[in-house]
Design a protein around this nucleic acid. Structure first.
Length: 458
RNA sequence: GCCCCCAUGGUGUAGCGGUUAGCACGCGAGCCUUUCACGCUCGUAGGGAGAGUUCGAGUCUCUCUGGGGGUACCA
């Protein structure tokens, strides 16, 4: 039987990096096994779900390079099937109608307690203000067979009778899950560890429904923050597409995400999609929570940025630079983009680096001004000298270098030192692309303007 | 409270009873260098605690401790 995995997000918010990782592992598994990767839109929470969020999820999947098989299943269109299953359970005495309110339950059991089975034997029929609960066997235990975690076993007595259909004929998550996994003939349920403790409920429903062979489960380790808590949308930066907006490359993010709980068998962490597909095995996935480490992500992104061809890099960076500068010049940008390629980890950092070439004035970074100009009493002399020498100099990188070396020699300075005040005068900062190439790109007129401007500022 | 999961340097991991505990990120130093980067080299730091099994344990068992997840008429 060919394996069939699924990613089943609920479209109730921006696509989450944790969801992306789950999708990726499902996808890698399916592709490695030559199986199917299916998508299911779990929109049973009608109040919170929207197609807008679904679009974001699909966008994110495509961006990361994942494709899917067959048509996307929309869970809300299958409520008839879910309700039929619930009806079957009620008829079989494995589920029952319940009219208890939250308040009534708390009044009986005190706050925080679970459901007490009050309605189990009351023989209630259907009603608009009634829900259907699953009658969990009072005896026995339910064992989950998990590829990663062995056989966690849950005493049935510790599981409360849970709701499978809400008031108003709205099927709940576990029920819909069981019915739809069966319908889609899912063989492998690969999802986050937060679902492990609801899995016995899933299994209990399957048994009660008389379904055949259970799917295999793999509960992936959670992705946590620096405080070791599950990534939360309130505290942590979890929106997948916000990474795209900051200039992370999909191959970098995808590679990094794959490493959260998994490592290629042989050595290299930097791996192509093909390699990952080839090497991915579910049983190699780690069990312990993994922290989302932006520093490492940045390193990966920098690596992939450097792997781009010059033209590719310019094309990728352009959308970040164009809107961020005063007057964008596409030709000039193509010419100078390589100056930035080894200097950034994120494309969104390019404008800060090259902005001086596309602006009418220099924005001085004060720390740079201090270090490059104010601190050294000879700065003014060098700048005056430069202002004179650059009037006559041939305007081309190599010639400019010779000219600048000569300026330094006249003041007893090596190029490395002599260029510092000039760099700050022209770019506003101390760490920047190579000076002479930058001057060549900037042009004689602007260069002179800025050198003189700095002289006035001293 | 109850249930379940997890535990190798700061972080992500390799190891599957015998290794000087490997790799990557980070951090530090050096080299390279037109500053800053990139790149390269070296360094830094580790199996939560305690019992047991064994000739031998990060690897197997148990207890404890710590962390996390779940416990909704959310998914």
């Amino acid at each position: 039987m060919t394996p069939r995995a699924r990613f089943s997000p609920s479209p109730t918010g921006p696509f989450h990096v944790g969801g992306a990782r789950t999708a990726l592992f499902n996808w890698l598994f399916a592709r490695h096994e030559g199986g199917a990767f299916l998508l299911r839109n779990e929109d049973t929470d009608r109040a919170r779900s929207s197609d807008h969020w679904l679009e974001g999820i699909l966008d994110g999947l495509r961006w990361l390079g994942m494709d899917w098989d067959e048509e996307i299943m929309r869970q809300s269109e299958r409520s008839e099937e879910h309700l039929a299953a619930a009806r079957q359970l009620v008829e079989g005495g494995q589920a029952y109608w319940c009219d208890c309110t939250r308040e009534a339950i708390e009044a009986r059991k005190g706050p925080g307690g679970g459901y007490d089975g009050f309605c189990r034997d009351r023989g209630l029929g259907p009603g608009d203000d009634r829900a259907i609960r699953f009658a969990v066997p009072r005896e026995g235990a339910t064992t989950v067979t998990d590829v990663l975690r062995g056989t966690p076993t849950f005493e049935n007595a510790t599981i409360d009778d849970f709701v499978i259909v809400r008031r108003g004929d709205a099927p709940m998550f576990v029920l819909a899950n069981v019915v739809d996994d069966e319908f889609q003939r899912i063989t492998h349920v690969i999802r986050g560890e937060e679902h492990l403790s609801t899995t016995p409920k899933y299994l209990l429903i399957r048994r009660a429904l008389g379904l055949g062979t259970d799917p295999a489960f793999a509960h992936l380790p959670l992705i946590v923050n620096e405080r070791r808590e599950k990534l939360s949308k309130r505290r942590d930066k979890v929106q997948l597409l916000s990474y795209r907006d900051e200039g992370y490359l999909p191959e970098a993010l995808r590679n990094y995400l794959a490493l959260l709980g998994w490592a290629p068998r042989e050595g290299e962490e930097i791996a192509t999609l093909e390699t990952m597909v080839e090497q991915f095995r579910l049983e190699d996935v780690s069990r312990s929570p993994a922290m989302f480490d932006v520093k490492k992500l940045n390193h990966f992104n920098g690596h992939y940025i450097r792997e781009l061809g010059a033209g590719e890099f310019a094309a990728a960076a352009r959308p970040f630079v164009e809107p961020a500068v005063e007057r964008f010049d596409p030709e000039l940008f193509t010419q100078v983009a390589p100056l930035a390629q080894t200097r950034v980890d994120r494309l969104a950092d390019v404008p800060e680096l090259l902005g001086f070439l596309f602006s009418d004035r220099v924005e001085f970074d004060e720390a740079s001004w201090e270090k490059g100009i104010a601190k050294n009493e000879w700065s003014a002399d060098v700048l005056r000298d430069a202002a004179a020498a650059y009037v006559e100099a041939a305007w081309e990188t190599e010639a400019l270098k010779d000219t600048t070396v000569a300026i330094g020699e006249r003041h007893g300075l090596k190029l490395g030192k002599a260029q510092a005040p000039i760099r700050v005068a022209v770019t506003g900062r101390t760490g920047a692309p190579r000076l002479c190439g930058s001057l060549a790109a900037l042009g004689r007129e602007t260069t002179l303007q800025r050198v003189n401007g700095a002289l006035e500022r001293i």
